[in-house]
Simulated assay, not measured.
Amino acid sequence: MIFLINKYLNFKIFTFISFRILFSLLTSFFINLFIGPYIISCFKKLQKFQIIRTDGPIGHLNKNNTPTMGGVFIIISICLSTLLYCNLNNTYIWYVLAIILGYGLIGLLDDYKKIKFNNSTGLKILYKFFWLSIIAILIIYLIYSKKENSASIELIIPFYTSIPLKINYFYIFLSYFVIVGTSNGVNLTDGLDGLAIMPIILISFGFGLIAFFSSDINLCNYINVSYSEQSNELSVLCGAIIGSGLGFLWFNTYPAQIFMGDVGSLSLGGALGIISLLLHQELLLLIMGGVFVFETLSVILQILYFKIRKKRIFKMAPIHHHYEIKGLSEPLITIRFWIISFILLLIGMLSLRIHNGI
């Protein structure tokens, strides 16, 4: 949209990427501030409340009257801001939007079933994974069908070398696990007020910086970033995610007025996954998204250990519930996880230059 305005008004400043990143962030932030109270009020009237697990921490039982599906206004603000400020001729933008909308729809159906049947089950796990997989596979196919040499795919290894690793068609399988895995990792982490949204904001900031510099081939070689003419436009979209995340946190910080629900967690996790693929920074996502990895592993370990030994490693999984049951307050756990996420972001950014001695 901004390019169409520039075509008639000839205000070149509108097309500067730094301008578009800033206004994309601010626009999505203020959209959430504006529509957030209306959506919260609407969901309360429709009684779209969070379904609380009866076997969870006792303190969560008082959240039964908190609306869910707040991811709806996250998606709205990201999409509107992206359509306003991004170059819509850029295919990378449409890949990310497709994941956000597709995964958002699956999450919406999941949330709807939980509310309708008044349980925390939602969609059947196999059914949900099937549709998450279908969307991921379609997007991956579109991405790699357009590459001139899809048999040689680059994988940048943090802390190691400026020469990317060629992993051939295995990269397609890796791409699938990155998108679906990150989506579910965010979903598992979203269990406390404000817990998941801050790591999303921080990771988006890191990817936004990488995308901003990725169209400069000299700078890419210097900081171990994959060069692409299209990828710098992702920095504008990352700005939209950051702004939307901050706007949502306005209402989601403790005590939360609304939860993002699966519609928000699945779509935002999928967005981070696809952005990492387009930037060739899948392993960097593993570092910066360490909180999501930690939460996911806690669930996997809990299930495996219980099946083998009939005992539990943690008092409850995901692990943030373990700390709750041990007596730590919800805000304390959340803030500490935010601090860890910030440290992981710094480590991830450092890894881009460590191989050259800086």
Rank of each mutant, 00 (worst) to 15 (best):
N10P: 06
S175N: 06
E295G: 09
S214A: 11
V186G: 06
G289I: 02
L105Y: 15
K124S: 12
R312V: 08
I156C: 00
E233L: 05
T182D: 05
I40Q: 10
N252Y: 13
F306E: 06
Y112N: 10
V96I: 01
L132Q: 15
L350G: 05
W94T: 12
P164W: 07
L237P: 01
I76W: 02
I300S: 04
N356E: 02
L283K: 07
N187Y: 06
F213D: 03
F170Y: 14
I125D: 05
L344A: 05
A98Q: 02
P318F: 11
I21H: 05
L268N: 01
K311Q: 15
M198S: 09
I339L: 10
S175Y: 00
F19D: 09
I75L: 11
K113H: 05
I197F: 01
D110W: 13
G191Y: 06
Y85T: 04
L237N: 06
S18A: 12
L345V: 08
K114D: 01
F73N: 11
I100G: 02
L346A: 10
C79D: 00
T54G: 14
T66K: 14
S204T: 07
N6Q: 11
L84E: 10
I51Q: 15
N224E: 03
G107K: 04
L142M: 13
I167N: 13
I78E: 03
W338L: 02
L165Q: 09
L142A: 13
G273N: 01
L344I: 00
A240D: 04
S28T: 06
L283Q: 02
S77W: 03
I275K: 01
P164H: 04
S265R: 09
E282L: 00
G269L: 05
V263S: 15
L9E: 05
L249T: 10
L286P: 00
N119E: 13
I242D: 08
L286M: 09
C238V: 07
G191L: 12
F19Y: 13
L304V: 10
V180R: 00
H320E: 08
T161L: 05
N32T: 08
S298D: 13
N221Y: 10
N149M: 07
L219R: 12
H320V: 09
S329E: 14
A271D: 04
K310A: 09
L188P: 08
S244N: 09
Y160M: 13
I201G: 07
F29C: 11
L155N: 07
N149R: 11
G102T: 03
R20F: 01
F19A: 13
F306N: 13
L9A: 14
L123P: 08
F49Y: 15
S77V: 03
L209G: 01
L105K: 05
K147R: 14
C86L: 09
P331W: 12
I39E: 01
G348P: 07
I58K: 15
Q47S: 15
M288F: 01
L301P: 00
I358M: 06
I333Q: 09
S145F: 09
L108F: 15
V293F: 10
W250I: 12
Y160F: 15
Y38Q: 04
F34Y: 15
L22T: 14
L268D: 03
I135M: 08
I157G: 04
K48W: 09
G245F: 02
F159Y: 07
S145R: 10
V236K: 00
G289V: 00
S244T: 07
I343M: 08
F248L: 03
I241C: 04
E229R: 10
N87L: 01
K116I: 13
Y8N: 13
M316E: 06
F306P: 04
M260I: 12
